[in-house]
Design a protein around this nucleic acid. Structure first.
Length: 489
RNA sequence: CGGGGUGUGGCGCAGUCCGGUUAGCGCACCUGCUUUGGGAGCAGGGGGUCGGAGGUUCGAAUCCUCUCACCCCGACCA
């Protein structure tokens, strides 16, 4: 247990904030709702980013960069889109400051912009305004572009990584000649996201469709990956949208097909954000702090030498030197902590930071030709022979990766409930939390009524559907879908 | 925007009701010595004008007025 850190079981959200700041992932910025991503947190994001960037490129996409400033009028071109984002836009109205006689700095009224500019909350509009220029013929399609960028959504209530006024993400925007192709793209990306979440972040996700109420503003369909956090609440961890021809219509993006006919382009967009860092923390963290999956841990192995004087320090160095080099040659991210703090303090420090493996070496171990290996996922120590060091470390890193996933998966399964009726639904949501899998009649009335009564929302309509005998949990009518309800972040 | 709360060294707090020595404590920080296999001990040391403005008073962190900021709960959301 880290000193002065909130107990996870007692207050999950306060535990979360404690861990984020104490582990050196992020800090609050001076403007409400902003955050500074600190070096350790940024390295973590960078590793996630690199994995996904590679996947995106391997599937034929290329990166580009579009401006952060968008003409206000662009946002209004797609009706649903503006409805969804109008309430949270930062707007640039002036371009100059000036200081008065008292030395106060004020906006210079004479610098008012004729056409105000908004700071992008997402880039569909500016990108489609450009696509109009770039797309003429079916030979220009598909157009598969991704960008890594910051976006701004002026949120009322913010939390580090999970919801901040400005955040980092990737947003893909593709243009296709046919509806089928766009749908295929949307699902392909969803699959990448699932792979990223499960194989790298060790975070099991449910995949499927969002309801009309939950889908992206301006999309025809929104698919998502949805995960369960340590407090059993749901977190939307990534979305992939089939935009149909909505944006092509709004921006007049047409192409000539091979029969010389003019057609509207089909679009997709998709994104994951720094929210994933929050997801990692809340999926795996325990009372001692973070537990990072090895594949994306900034430090995979930390070496803590235990010495009384300079001679012992030297002895440890020469004892372990070659092995450390071997691990570095294998591209394992290793850090040696030679600072003069006491060992116990270092143990706690690196546990808080979630480093998957810690190696302890003292005189005792040198004599026995051994090392102590501690694995963060199970909080267990074992003695290993120095000769086996490299192999065991590599194997243990793989084990930890697998084990973290399985632990999270078991947790998700164990906390996914079936309920017989709406009374039981309410009881479970209120007392136990977690996911509820049940029938829904498909009406937005039922959906919003359940939300009012329980605060639970439909997180996802899973791909696998079994509705033969299924009744709607609320209306008791024949179910149209089997869905997952939960309280969400 | 509605309800609740908090502003005192870097962080966490006490002191405020009932005004009165030099504003105190824990953590962190610095120096030295002893320590080092689960958050070390001792000694010494640096750092705050009490969110801001105005007022009452011989005297204000404390009382009064105004103001600002932030946090929590609700409506909105990746």
């Amino acid at each position: 247990m880290s000193k002065n850190t909130t107990i996870q079981k007692e207050n999950f959200s306060s535990w979360y904030t404690d861990i984020v700041t104490k582990a050196g992932l992020a800090d609050y910025g001076p403007v409400k709702g902003t955050m500074v991503i600190m070096p350790y947190g940024f390295e973590l994001w960078d590793l996630v980013k690199n994995v996904l960037d590679k996947m995106i490129k391997e599937t034929g996409h290329v990166n580009a960069y579009f401006p952060i400033f968008i003409p206000k009028s662009y946002l209004a071109k797609e009706a649903e889109h503006i409805d969804g984002f109008a309430k949270e836009c930062a707007v640039v109205t002036h371009t100059r400051l000036k200081s008065d006689h008292n030395g106060d700095i004020n906006v210079d009224p004479s610098s008012r912009l004729e056409e105000e500019v908004i700071v992008r909350p997402t880039s569909e509009t500016i990108i489609w305004s450009m696509y109009k220029k770039w797309i003429q013929s079916y030979r220009d399609l598909p157009l598969l572009i991704n960008q890594w960028a910051n976006v701004v959504r002026w949120e009322m209530r913010t939390r580090l990584f999970l919801r901040t006024s400005e955040f980092l993400w990737q947003e893909g925007h593709t243009a296709h000649a046919t509806a089928e192709e766009a749908e295929e793209e949307t699902l392909k990306i969803l699959d990448l996201y699932k792979c990223l979440a499960e194989d790298y972040l060790a975070m099991p996700v449910l995949t499927g469709l969002k309801t009309e109420a939950e889908k992206f503003a301006g999309a025809k369909k929104t698919y998502c990956i949805e995960a369960m956090m340590g407090d059993k609440k749901a977190l939307q961890a990534g979305t992939s949208h089939n935009l149909g021809q909505n944006f092509a219509k709004a921006f007049g993006v047409t192409f000539q097909n091979d029969k010389n006919e003019e057609e509207l382009v089909f679009a997709t967009s998709w994104g994951v954000s720094t929210r994933l860092v929050g997801a990692i923390i809340m999926t795996h963290g325990d009372e001692n702090g973070l537990r990072l999956p090895p594949k994306i841990a900034p430090i995979q192995v930390v070496v803590v030498p235990i010495f009384k004087d300079e001679d012992q320090k030297k002895a440890i160095k020469s004892f372990i030197m070659n092995q450390i080099q071997d691990l570095k040659n294998e591209n394992i991210r290793i850090y040696e902590d030679w600072s003069d703090r006491r060992p116990g303090s270092k143990f706690n420090h690196w546990e808080l930071k979630g480093v998957p493996i810690r190696i302890e070496i003292g005189q005792r171990d040198i004599l026995n030709e051994e090392l102590v290996l501690y694995r963060r996922d199970k909080n267990e120590k074992s003695n290993i022979k120095i000769d086996d060091f490299v192999n065991i470390v590599k194997k243990t890193l793989r084990d930890i990766q697998t084990n973290l996933f399985l632990e999270a998966k078991n947790f998700q399964v164990k906390n996914t409930h079936n309920v017989k009726n709406f009374d039981e639904f309410k009881t479970v949501i209120e007392n136990e939390g977690g996911f509820i899998k049940c029938g829904w009649d498909g009406t937005s009335e039922t959906e919003s009524r359940i939300k009012e009564l329980t605060k639970a929302t439909i997180r996802v309509i899973p791909f696998e559907q079994d509705i033969d005998q299924l009744k709607c949990i609320y209306s008791n009518k024949k179910a149209k879908y089997e869905v997952i309800f939960a309280k969400a972040y």
